[in-house]
Write a protein that binds this DNA or RNA. Structure first.
Lengths: 152, 152
DNA sequence: CTAAACGCGGACCTAACCAGTCGGATATTC
DNA sequence: GAATATCCGACTGGTTAGGTCCGCGTTTAG
C-alpha cells in the first residue's frame, strides 16, 4: 500500500510540535500525546527511539521531557521516518548481498530502486521546519531534476 | 515501511515479461509464474485483476492466456500498482471527507500529501516499456521540477 | 463430443506485523 | 524520599498480506 506507519506519523507530529514551540525548554511525552490525542505510552517509545538516534534530547526528572537536539531546519522527514520505521525499500525483495532469493532475473528491482532513491530524496529535502510552517516551501526546483532523473 | 506489496511486484514483473515478448500472442498464468518462480495461483489472481482494470486482455481455452491490452509504452507503473493494491496514500489517516479522526490539527497531513503526489507522479512517468529496457530512460528532466515542486 | 487446457472468482487459512498495553527499572528534582 | 520523568523489554490483540483450495465457465484440439 506504500504508506508509512502511524508511529512515523506520530513522530513527525511530535517533532513538528516541538519546532512550533522553540521557547519552551522541554515537553513531556504526556504533553505531546495529549496535544494530539495519541496514546501516551506509545508516543513515549517513539520519542525514546528518536532520542537514541540523536534527533531529540531528553531530560529525566521533574520538568523534564524532550526537546529538539538540532535546529528544526536541519532535521529531515527522512531521518525521522528512518529512525522509527527503519530503512525502507520499495522493493519487497530485501536488498543486500543476496538479490531476489529465487527469482533469477528480477530486473524490475533495478529501476524501482531508482524510484526508491527519488522518494528518499524528496523526503530528505523536507525539514521539520517545513512542516511547522503552514506554507510549505520545500524542495528547491534547482535540485529537483537531480532528484528525479533516473538516468545518472 | 513504505514498501509496495509483493503482489504489485509480481504484477510488474509479469507485465514486463509480456513487454519483452511482443511476438508471442499470449502467455498463460502458469508460464509467467514459472518464469519467475512465483506461486501460479496467486499470480493468476493478480492477472485477473489487471484484466478487469483493462491493462491486460485475456483469452480462455487452450493456447489462451494473457497479453497486454495496450502498448507497453502507454502503461505506467502507477496504473499497475493502483490496480493491484488500490489507491495508496502516504498518510495513515485514511482520506476522504472525514479528516484525521481525533487529532484536531493534523497539519502534518497536508505537506505529506504533496509528497504522495510526487511519488505518484514519478510512478506515472515510468512505463512498462521502461522496465523492459535494461537502460532505464525515464522521467524527462523537463517535467521533473513540476513533479517535485511542493509549492504550486 | 469429449477432454484437456485455460481463465474466473469466491472462500479459506496462516503467518507476519502494526498498534497499543503492562510492568518494572532508573534518573532527577523538590 | 516522594513525585515526576525517561527508559526498555515483554506481551497481546487485531488487521492485513501472502498464499491455497475448489468449483465453475470457456475455448480448442483430437
Amino acid at each position: 500500500m506504500l504508506k508509512l506507519t502511524k508511529k512515523a506519523d506520530y513522530g513527525l507530529m511530535a517533532l513538528k510540535f516541538l519546532a512550533e514551540h522553540p521557547e519552551t525548554p522541554a515537553f513531556s511525552a504526556k504533553d505531546l500525546a495529549d496535544a494530539y490525542g495519541i496514546p501516551a505510552q506509545l508516543l513515549a517509545k517513539i520519542l525514546q527511539r528518536l532520542t537514541k538516534t540523536g534527533l531529540l534530547r531528553s531530560h529525566a526528572g521533574m520538568n523534564g521531557g524532550y526537546a529538539l537536539a538540532r535546529e528544526a531546519r536541519t532535521i529531515s522527514a527522512y531521518e525521522v521516518i528512518h529512525s522509527i520505521d527503519g530503512p525502507f525499500f520499495i522493493t519487497s525483495c530485501t536488498k543486500g548481498a543476496k538479490s531476489c532469493e529465487l527469482t533469477p532475473n528480477c530486473t524490475i528491482k533495478e529501476p524501482l530502486a531508482r524510484v526508491n532513491e527519488t522518494i528518499a530524496g524528496v523526503l530528505k529535502s523536507i525539514s521539520i521546519q517545513d512542516l511547522a510552517e503552514h506554507e510549505p516551501a520545500a524542495a528547491k526546483p534547482a535540485e529537483a531534476h537531480k532528484l528525479v532523473a533516473l538516468t545518472p
